[in-house]
Design a protein around this nucleic acid. Structure first.
Lengths: 106, 106
DNA sequence: TATAAATGCAACTGATCGGTTTCGCAAATT
DNA sequence: AATTTGCGAAACCGATCAGTTGCATTTATA
């Protein structure tokens, strides 16, 4: 039961669900119709996504609308931060290199 | 054998390895010393990371130095892009709301 | 040349995963 | 009140996973 946001996002179907409901909340049935999967399978994915709070369900009568907790996605972004620093540094080093070539031996 | 960058990053040990070698290339033995895992386990992780080109090994004598292919990490960043748009929109909507409160009925 | 060190690879194992099937429950419809 | 609809939960199944153990190969060292 160790739900991890990275593990949640590892599954392609789950990523597709996330993208699907990113713009508007949807019911499990509606989601399942978009894929070649059963409603129950989607339900299991939604449970996993709910467990790590990537998704939240809101009951409306007998339907449940699931919507993306987009804020939670920032966790991944946060982890990427350290590498973004590196690739930006690489870029500025390249930048520096280029300007060194332009005016060699300042 | 369907190696996917998201699946590669799903494992916490693999994420730790990535972070570890992000700044400087390391050998499997050196990496294994940092964790509570065997060298062989690290080797398997490195194989997976190599398969999806997140990591590249360079032979130096009988040692192999593995370094991070930081460019590859941008794939994850790229996927996040769509959600970044959403949360930035949310933010600017909040921004708009705040300025509406400040000066109501312009 | 014999030995030690660094590594990859294959076989095995218990755990987990993603999916299906079946069931039960609550809300809507007839 | 009986039926249909929308849903989650549990039991099960084959596939995959992460780790261990054992072995083979190449390079450095004694």
């Amino acid at each position: 039961m160790r739900r991890d946001i990275f593990q949640a996002v590892a599954d392609p179907t789950r990523r597709a669900i996330i993208t699907l409901i990113a713009l508007q909340a949807m019911t499990p049935n509606a989601i399942a119709e978009q894929f070649n999967t059963s409603r129950q399978a989607v339900s299991k994915h939604l449970r996993i996504l709910t467990e790590c709070e990537l998704v939240k369900g809101e009951q409306k009568g007998r339907e449940i609308y699931y919507r993306l907790e987009v804020e939670r996605m920032k966790e991944i972004d946060k982890w990427l931060e350290q590498f973004r620093k590196i690739w930006e540094t690489r870029f500025s080093q390249l930048d520096e290199l280029l300007s060194t070539i332009k005016k060699p031996k300042t």
